[in-house]
């Protein structure tokens, strides 16, 4: 069974590294040591099944489908179930960033985190500096993440002290109109869904 291999250039010449990678894969497949499907599986798993990609898909859907977004904001648990995502015993509350409102999620008492959407939390989220400062000086914390919030914007901090988990729905970046969901999801970072980042179109991608 033939296997088409993705690479950047269409029919343009391959780079040296692309050629070497293809050489190895084709030789190993010929010698019966691996299958290309197995390679796909491993790449796919890390790119699609693990970590913040799940949350990113939820965000991309909300941006693309206003009715879904309304359902997501009204009942997060039920809405993500539509996408086949389970929230074990923990109700999901989705909080929306808007012009004039920036949301930030923390768990001051331990490390509660919507792991079923974002994977395991980073060490900084569970650390004493973040847990202590996010509630008392959120703007200073955001500044350390490279985010400067305008004075008139309201910063809303959510301390996950009970059985609810919070996901920030970041603002959709300008210039992404008409983009397919998969392309939108690739823009969304874990930090943007915690509130320590925002979503922007990278320089290299802008027309």
């Amino acid at each position: 069974m033939s296997h088409e291999h993705p690479h950047e250039h269409g029919h343009a010449p391959l780079s040296d590294l692309e050629a070497r990678a293809l050489a190895i894969e084709s030789l190993l497949v010929e010698k019966g040591l691996i299958t290309s499907d197995a390679v796909d599986r491993h790449v796919y798993r890390y790119e699609h099944d693990i970590g913040p990609v799940i949350g990113a898909r939820v965000v991309a859907r909300a941006w693309s489908d206003p009715a879904f977004k309304d359902r997501l904001l009204a009942d997060g648990t039920a809405a993500i179930a539509e996408l086949g995502i389970e929230s074990p015993d923990l109700h999901l509350e989705v909080v929306e960033n808007q012009p004039g409102v920036h949301n930030l999620v923390v768990c001051t008492l331990c490390s509660c985190y919507p792991w079923y959407l974002l994977g395991l939390p980073p060490v900084w989220y569970k650390s004493a500096p973040y847990r202590s400062r996010a509630v008392i000086e959120p703007r200073a914390v955001l500044h350390e993440f490279g985010l400067d919030i305008p004075d008139e914007t309201q910063v809303k901090v959510w301390d996950s002290s009970a059985d609810l988990r919070y996901l920030v729905l970041p603002e959709r970046p300008e210039g992404s109109e008409g983009w397919p969901e998969e392309r939108l999801a690739a823009l969304v970072s874990r930090d943007a869904m915690i509130g320590t980042g925002i979503v922007a179109i990278p320089e290299a991608v802008r027309p």
Partner: peptide, 15 residues
């Protein structure tokens, strides 16, 4: 928190 493959061949090398 996510693995980064800047080019598809990088993902293939890992896979």
């Amino acid at each position: 928190g996510e693995l980064v493959f800047n080019q598809p061949w990088e993902g293939r090398a890992f896979g």
